[in-house]
Design a protein around this nucleic acid. Structure first.
Lengths: 206, 206
DNA sequence: TAGATTGTTAATCGATTAACAATC
DNA sequence: TAGATTGTTAATCGATTAACAATC
């Protein structure tokens, strides 16, 4: 009976997770809902309510044990089941993401990169090889990869997405500023970096 | 009497904006709320309600003029008032962002990069020079920059943020997976890439 | 005209906040 | 013990959806 956790709650849980990492680094063992709330500038009962969705419990007068709470968030959000993925587009953003070792800690295992540019093919980035895009269908099948981080330019995003769909890719984390039209059964997550900026920009000028 | 537009609405407006760009490229002049809703898999009255917040009006039986609607979104979200910014951290992500020319179209003008690594100082990326971090306070004052895109490693994020605050930076777009503790008057926007992935990851496995 | 689409109000749904008893 | 903090219920607030009259 997993209660479905809302988008906003998940987002907050990941922010709590960041804070817990900081506390661990500072060797602090416990944290209260008020401390978390103050750092994120939200309500403390919000924090307690979010935490109540986890397999975890706090202690009156003490708060929560940092290590336990961290583990509880990881369990609930499923860091435990790593997902294999490819990066498609070995441009700057693609390379930056390939070097992001942090991903693995959070259950995302990037196995290889793909590009159309022959100059990029064969290069190895952070132990991940860059292959020609034509190799993708075969390798995806071999390695059982269903997820792609899409970092190609806007102009070829839809075309590339169509190719990925034909290659049996089911999950696309889309970093290009483009809305992809995909068939049922394929999930797209739009990173929408510009959108995030505008969001920030609007917020600070109002 | 600018009605305050909610976070979620802003996010959707930026997604509509992406769609409108696609329509313009395909030389399509009009679009209906139902078309937008289908692409984003949301309710069509949601779309109409969002659009009603803009300086824009649709036409019965026709829909919205793509070009007008695009302009209306830009006006409301303030693309019109560009903001100058620095990138702090000339690693892979910093360089990727520096090459992101798209930013300028959306009102974000990146003027320079900063790093501690002497090997990186002096390099020019996409017409933006990399300076030593020690030059930041002076240049920020000279150029009137109050915003920073923070792309340093997690381990030095808080230390760097403290330095930025002392240098009179007021707005930090934080790309490091770390919650920054900043004084009142300074705004932080957490990009939280890992959080977004977990969000996606949780969604697709439930 | 007939019918498609907007714009908007009312109804529903969900998320946040307030409050406080239970706990250690 | 006294008091700080959780866990949870009830109250409030805001966002989404449904419905439909107005419009072209």
């Amino acid at each position: 009976m997993d209660k479905k956790i809302s988008d906003k709650t998940i987002n907050r849980l990941t922010l709590y997770h960041c804070i817990l990492n900081d506390f661990i680094e500072s060797n602090i063992n416990t944290i209260t809902s008020v401390q978390i709330a103050n750092l994120l500038k939200i309500d403390d009962s919000q924090v307690r309510k979010d935490i109540s969705l986890l397999q975890n419990s706090g202690k009156s007068r003490v708060g929560y044990y940092v290590a336990d709470l961290k583990k509880a968030i990881e369990t609930t959000l499923g860091f435990a089941h790593p997902k294999n993925a490819f990066i498609v587009g070995a441009g700057n953003l693609g390379l930056a993401l390939a070097k992001y070792d942090n991903f693995l800690n959070y259950g995302l295992n990037v196995l290889a990169l793909f590009d159309v540019d022959p100059l990029k093919v064969g290069v190895t980035i952070n132990k991940k090889e860059v292959y020609h895009i034509s190799k993708l269908p075969e390798l995806a099948k071999q390695m059982g990869v269903q997820m792609v981080l899409l970092t190609v330019p806007r102009s070829v995003a839809q075309k590339t997405a169509d190719f990925l769909v034909n290659s049996n890719i089911k999950y696309i984390w889309n970093f290009s500023p483009s809305i992809l039209d995909v068939p049922k059964g394929v999930e797209v997550w739009n990173e929408n970096l510009m959108g995030n900026f505008l969001h920030f920009s609007y917020k600070i000028s109002n």
